[in-house]
Each structure stands twice: as structure tokens, then as C-alpha cells.
Design a binder for these strands. Structure first.
Lengths: 218, 218
DNA sequence: GTTTAAAATCAGGAAATTCCCTATTATGTT
DNA sequence: AACATAATAGGGAATTTCCTGATTTTAAAC
């Protein structure tokens, strides 16, 4: 009896590629495909696959929420996330939602096969890059003894600093704006960078846009 | 003699899937792969493929700039864009950069095969969805007589600098990437800022996102 | 085929900013 | 009371940016 797999990815050509790749594997079978979160839920209900290989960035219902529903309602269906993002917040959310594996799309195909086998045998599997992130967060939690809040790691004040920073204001201007010393803003900035593990204004800006802290307007 | 294809996509597993799919096709051969814009240029120089199947969203040097360089330096090498975006601006830029085809990743594999054959025979190929956009813009231009892409003030080299800058790279790193002095990058940067009248990395990043020079991913 | 303009390259040195380390003072929390 | 977190800030080294100026290559125009 081969491992029954459901592919969930919004790009048809990616699904087709994965399906073809997996066809060459002994003991694995792609029994269905879905192109969005809701479709995935339906197919899971219909086919009860062993494993769902799931893209995170899907329309309608994203991979994280879909995973949350699957793992709570169908406890024997395992989910492997196949993501473009190595962002710790995606990893944390996906694992917290109950995924059994997390792979980057940049991984080798062999790694996917390996992950599928591992997860089928009730193990967890992470991409090597991802493992580093998870261990890092784990250690941080150990040392701080407070759970990492993956959703909102910044304090209100840090957000207040981040917004003008990602709107092109200089440290000095922000200091004037908030009526504190420029040194204080510097400290906030490095604290923000440390927390998010982003070390450039460009990356902070992208983060802030995605989090709704600033907008694309200039 | 089969059609010699170069695959350019930053996700290994996607390349692997496409390679496997294309292997089943008579008269087509994937002769090389690349995972970023600069790598693509090298491989093009090395292998002189008939066709480059190119993802748009690649780090360091994006698919559009890469296409621009390829089509200007290697006029017999054709480029087919394989993109997630049906955004008109991407389509317009890609075609303007000299691409011979534009497909959505959501397309069927058969469509890619079809596109490759068409482009190899010196035709152009667009996804059906994309055709609608192009015709729409064309009609709009006819009626308004105002060009859609309102005057891109940056030179190709400046865009080459802007992309890594808005991906969080330091001036030094960009200099290494482009094999020029850091002083040169500084000059480009201030030239960019001058032209756009934007004087912070945050604002440049937003501009670059809107212009498709970089993406929101970190 | 010269003139002209734009693009791409680089440097020196002053000015400004960031980075790293350290530290103090609320403010809650257990 | 004890403890962690948040918010504040300074000193000084290291780095980056800014301004001015200059050469070379490429492309277009005439």
C-alpha cells in the first residue's frame, strides 16, 4: 500500500511538475490536487490522504489556516509545508498550526521524498535551513523563558518607531517626532532588527508593509 | 536537432519538476538551469540555448533585467517568461525587455510546450489571460494616446543597483556583486535618489516594489 | 566622422550615521 | 520583594553617506 498524497499549490504547472516527479517514486501516489485552501479541505474530506503537500501562499484560505483545520479535524492526515519563505514567522505559524514538516521550495526533490517518508512514519521533518531557525527560537525561549510571540514580536513603542523609519524618516527626525533622544531611537531600531532578524531598512520596510505598519504609498 | 532550453527559476524543486516534464517531450532538451539572474546570464553565454524559460521574481537580478541583457547581447536567444503575476506592468515590462512569450505559472504544462514550439519558430506566444491584458492596454493606448509606462527614469544599470539595494544588500555587497568599486555604487545610488527625488532606502524600497524591481518577500 | 550627450566608472575627505556595549528608570507580574 | 520587560540614553569605534570632481565608454545626432 503506497503513501497517498494530496498536492495543494495554486500553480498548476508546479503541481504537474511535482506529480510527475513523485510518479517516479516507489510507494508514493498522488491521489488528488487542489489549487486553493478551500479546495484542499474538500479533497481531504473526500480522499483522506496520508499526506498533504501544501504551499503556504494560496488564495482564499491560506496554507496555514488550511493546515490548522486539517490537523484538528483529520488527525491522521499529515501536512508538509512547501514554502518560498524561510521567514521565522511563517515557520512558527505553520508548525503551531500542526504541520509535520516544513520545506523550502528551493530544496532538492530528494528532500521532499525524504520528508514524505519521515512524516509518514510519524516523524517530523524540517529543511536544514529551517532547522536552524527553529533551534534558534527554541534556545531564545529557553534563555528567556517566555514564549516567542510569533505574531507580534514588537512592542507598541517599537511599532511607533518602525513606522516613520519605513516612511523614510531619519533617526533624528523620529527622535524629534517622539520627543526623545536620537540614541533612544537607535536602541529601538537595533532592538527591532534583532527581534525580526532583519538588518536593513529595505527588509524592515517590506516587513512593515506586510504587517500593515506602513503602506506602499510614498 | 532538438530545441535547447535553459531553465531559470529560483526554486530548485520547480526547476526539477519542469525538467522532468520537458524530458517527456520529443525534440526538447533542458541543457542547463540557473537560479538567479546573474547565473542565467552566465549559462546563456556558456550554452547559447535556443530558449530561456525564465521566472520573473528572482533575487539579485530579476527576470526583466536579465531578459533585457540577454535579448540585447544574444539576439538569437529567445526568452519565455513564466510568471506568477498577471499584473499588466510585469507583462508590459517583460515584453518591452524583449521576451518572446509570457505564461502564467498557473497554466497547463501543454501550454508551455506549445509556447516553446511557437517561440522557437520565431512567433510570439502569450497566455490567453495575458493576451486580454495586452489587447486591453493596446486599445487604451489607441484611445488615449498616452503611453502606459510613464517614462522610466532609471537606466538599466541603475535598476541593477536598485534591486539588491532594496533587498537589503549593503553598498559593499552590491559592489562585489557587480564587480565594481563601492564608490561606483554610491554614485549610482545618489543618482537614483536624485532622479526619483527619494532620499531614503525605505522610499526606494516602496518604489521598487511598485515598479516590480523587487518583491515583498524577504 | 566628428560633436554631443548620457551612462558608467572611481576617488578624496568631511560629515553623519550606525553599531556595540553599558546603564538607568519606570512598570508591571508573580 | 524579586524579576523581567520596556523605554530611555551616552560613549566611542566603525562604517556609511554626502559632496565635489574627474575619466572613460557608449550611443545618438548631426
Amino acid at each position: 500500500m503506497s503513501i497517498r498524497i494530496l498536492l495543494a499549490d495554486d500553480h498548476k504547472i508546479v503541481r504537474m511538475g511535482l506529480r510527475t516527479l513523485l510518479k517516479s517514486q516507489q510507494g508514493m501516489e498522488v491521489i488528488a490536487e487542489a489549487q486553493d485552501g478551500r479546495g484542499t479541505l474538500q479533497k481531504v474530506k473526500e480522499y483522506l490522504p496520508d499526506i498533504v503537500v501544501m504551499d503556504i501562499g494560496m488564495p482564499e484560505l491560506n496554507g496555514i489556516e488550511t493546515t490548522r483545520i486539517i490537523t484538528s479535524e483529520f488527525s491522521h492526515v499529515k501536512v508538509i509545508a512547501l514554502s518560498m519563505h524561510s521567514d521565522r514567522r511563517f515557520v512558527a505559524r505553520m508548525l503551531e498550526a500542526g504541520a509535520s514538516g516544513y520545506l523550502l521550495k528551493d530544496c532538492a526533490f530528494e528532500e521532499l521524498v525524504h520528508a514524505i517518508k519521515a512524516v509518514y512514519n510519524n516523524q517530523l521533518y524540517l529543511s536544514p535551513d529551517i532547522t536552524g531557525i527553529v533551534i534558534g527560537d527554541y534556545l531564545r525561549q529557553l534563555s528567556s523563558r517566555t514564549p516567542l510571540a510569533p505574531f507580534n514580536p514588537l512592542t507598541p513603542r517599537e511599532r511607533e518607531v518602525l513606522q516613520p523609519l519605513t516612511e523614510g524618516k531619519t533617526t533624528k527626525q523620529i527622535a524629534a517626532l517622539l520627543h526623545v533622544s536620537a540614541k533612544t531611537i537607535e536602541t529601538h531600531r537595533s532592538q527591532i532588527m534583532e527581534k525580526l532578524n532583519l538588518h536593513s531598512v529595505a527588509e524592515l520596510t517590506k516587513y512593515a508593509i506586510r504587517e500593515g505598519i506602513t503602506t506602499l504609498d510614498i
